[in-house]
Amino acid sequence: MKRKGNPITRKELTITSRSMRFSWGLFGFEACLTVIFLIAIAVLGVENRYSYVRSNASRFSSFIAIFPAVSIAELCIVALIIPVMTATLISGEKERQTFDIMLTTQIKPMQIVVGKMMSSVIKVMTYVIMSIPIMAVGFTLGGISWWALLFFLVFTLLTALLEASVGIFCSAACKRSITSILLTYFIMGLIYMGTFLPIFITALMDSFMTVFTGESLAMSGSMLALLPNPVVLFVEYFSLALGGESYFVKEMVDEGLPILSFMGEKCVWLIISSIVILLLSYLFLRLAARAVDPLRGGRGQASKAKTAVNYTPVRQEESRQNIAGGYGQEESRQNIAGTYGQEENRQYTE
């Protein structure tokens, strides 16, 4: 029986499946979602009670809002736990030197990195898939197609891929897991929020322009910066799934952006954004593979310099002691030599 797949993913999953942490994590994850689900229902119930129109139809259609509420909560949890999951994946193995052993085998750094990434994506997707029953209530009540659910899973997978790739990169680049977690949050923060910066600047300039010249600026160019942003991907997806209108594509087509106008389809943003996110994940994986490859100048000069600070004094201390004990004084030298020889002799004659 020849087993296929990345051996590292397989190893990680074997180890994970034996630890209680994974089960408790799963339990916690589903418990959180259930609580959010119940809160959402309660809020909707209160709203319905005080609304003027009290037909059954409107009562049910408002349940549609459960779906985005629960899925956004789910995404937030995914975004928070992946950095924690991935933080120790590389740095932990480096600590035990199992990473060195791995590097002396035939496996390529890229395979190691991809294997690690896949294992955490599979873990997170298990959480997400386990929560489908909770989401399904929102579906059956709100009347959303099953296709929408499938796409939700695909986009969650993409987000998880990006998060995990960034997380692996940080784990490879940082020595300590806490810095790795923080760096992952920081980079993801840049992707989630920093990508709005071009729009913000354009909007600012637009306001000045309208005041001074009366012309208005096209916004759609700076919107392209939002393509790698999974949050925007989900906003677009929800607006399509719930209302059937595409916010971003419409805006761009209206402004006549050439690349997009010929594709004037509804889901073009979703497709392009997915591709951009995939490419970005790949880029981070490549960077991670580079960072762990010792022969390509990897392992970071910076981190090496840092270890030198911690490392050298200890070593020197050690060798000083050795010198003092070993050959500092004439008589003690003989003694040490004597006991050494004896001890060794005794051990081997046993």
Binding site: P7, T14, I15, Q97, T105
Partner: peptide, 22 residues
Amino acid sequence: PDFFGVYDNFKVSEYMEFYGSL
């Protein structure tokens, strides 16, 4: 290596199989 750790929750046979697959 001079110092090395092993994985928790991993059996000897799996350890060998893992490195074999590498």
